Amino acid sequence: MRSSNNLIGLVNFFTFLLSIPILGGGIWLSSRANSTDCLRFLQWPLIIIGISIMVVSLAGIAGACYQNKFLMWLYLFAMFFVIAALIGFIIFAYAVTDKGSGRFVMNRRYLDYYLHDYSGWLKDRVTDNGYWNEIGSCVRDSGVCKKIRRDLNGVPETPQMFYFRKLSPVESGCCKPPTDCGYTYVNETVWIPGGEMVGPNPDCMLWNNDQRLLCYQCSSCKAGVLGSLKKSWRKVSVINIVVLIILVIFYVIAYAAYRNIKRIDNDEPVGEARMTKSHPSHFQI
C-alpha cells in the first residue's frame, strides 16, 4: 500500500510539472495578444486548465502523502474532467484555425492575406465591427508597423530588398497595401498608386499613407490577424497534445495504483480473519 501511495504521489508531482507548459502557453498567448494578435479572451481557457491541473495535482500529492483516499479519489475524479477539457480545447483550437493561410506572390518572399480564404467562428469573431474596432486599435497601438522599418546605416531600403523580406501576417496585412493593388513602394509604410492593379480589391481604396490609418481597416489586416492567431494557436496546440498524451498515461498509472490500494484495503479483513482462525487463542475455556 505504501508503494502505491508513493507511486501516486510521484505521478501527481510529474502532473504538476506538466501543468507548467500549459499555463506557460496561456501566458504566452496573453503576451501575443498584447503585441500583435490582440484577441485577449482566447488565452483564458488555457490558463484556467493549467491552474486547474496544478491545484488538482497538489490535492493528489496531499492525498498520497497523508494516505487520504478521499483526496486521491477527488484527484482522479477532477483530473478526468480536466483532461476532457484539454481535449476539447485542442479540438476547438484546430477547428477554428482549420481554414485559411497566406498566398504566395510572384517575386515576393512575404505572403499576402485575403479574408475570404478564412471561414468559421474565429473569422466571424474577428470581423465583427464591435470586436474589430478594439482589435484594430490594439494592432495600431502595438506599433507593429513602426517596427517594420529597418536601420541600414542611413542607406534607404530598395524595393527589391523589401520584397524579399519575410513579414509576419500582421505586418503583411496591415502595414502595406495588397500586392494586387499595384502600388509603388516608397518606403516600408508609404506606397503610392502608379502600378497596374490586378483585379478588383476593395482594400486598394482603403489604403492610406497616414501612419494612423495605413491598412488597419482593410480586409487584409483582418486576415493577417487571423493568420497570426493560427500560427500562435498551432504552436501551443502541439505542446498541448504532447502534454495530453503524458497526462493520460499518468492518469492510467494513478488509477491503477488507486485500485490496488482499494483491493489491499478490502483484503485486509479477510486476511485478519484467516490469521485468527489459523492461530486460535490458548486461553479459551
Rank of each mutant, 00 (worst) to 15 (best):
L213N: 06
F80T: 15
P21G: 05
S220A: 14
S278Y: 00
S101T: 08
E272F: 08
L214N: 04
T15C: 10
Y185C: 11
Y114M: 05
G26T: 06
G100S: 06
C38R: 11
H282P: 07
K166D: 11
R103E: 14
I246L: 15
P269W: 00
V155D: 03
I61W: 04
G88Q: 09
G50A: 08
A64S: 14
R109L: 04
L167N: 08
V198L: 11
V242H: 00
P200S: 11
L58A: 13
Q67P: 00
D37Y: 02
R109E: 10
H279P: 00
V126G: 03
R108L: 03
A256W: 02
M79C: 06
I51K: 07
Y66F: 15
V155E: 11
S4N: 13
V190K: 15
G60P: 02
N6D: 05
C218S: 14
L226G: 04
Y255Q: 12
K146V: 03
D112A: 10
F16W: 14
V11L: 09
P200D: 15
L229G: 08
M106F: 01
G24V: 04
F41Y: 12
W44M: 12
N12Y: 02
G173N: 07
G120A: 04
E157G: 02
I48G: 11
G102Y: 04
M54N: 00
F80A: 14
C145D: 04
K166Q: 12
P159T: 01
S281R: 07
T15S: 14
M54V: 03
K235V: 13
W191D: 09
I91G: 05
W132K: 09
G271M: 12
A59T: 07
F14D: 08
I285M: 10
S52C: 10
L229K: 02
I192P: 00
I264Q: 13
L18F: 06
I135F: 01
F164Q: 14
L17A: 13
R165S: 05
P159A: 03
I192R: 15
G195I: 11
R40W: 06
F162T: 02
P280D: 04
Y118D: 09
I192N: 11
Q217F: 02
M1A: 12
A62T: 05
E268W: 11
F77N: 09
P269E: 08
A254M: 07
I261V: 15
Y251W: 15
D98W: 05
P193W: 09
H282G: 02
Y163H: 13
D267W: 05
L46Y: 00
S119R: 12
G120K: 06
I239V: 15
G60N: 08
L23N: 04
S228P: 00
C218W: 01
S281T: 12
F89D: 15
L167K: 07
C175T: 06
I246P: 01
Y183D: 12
G120E: 03
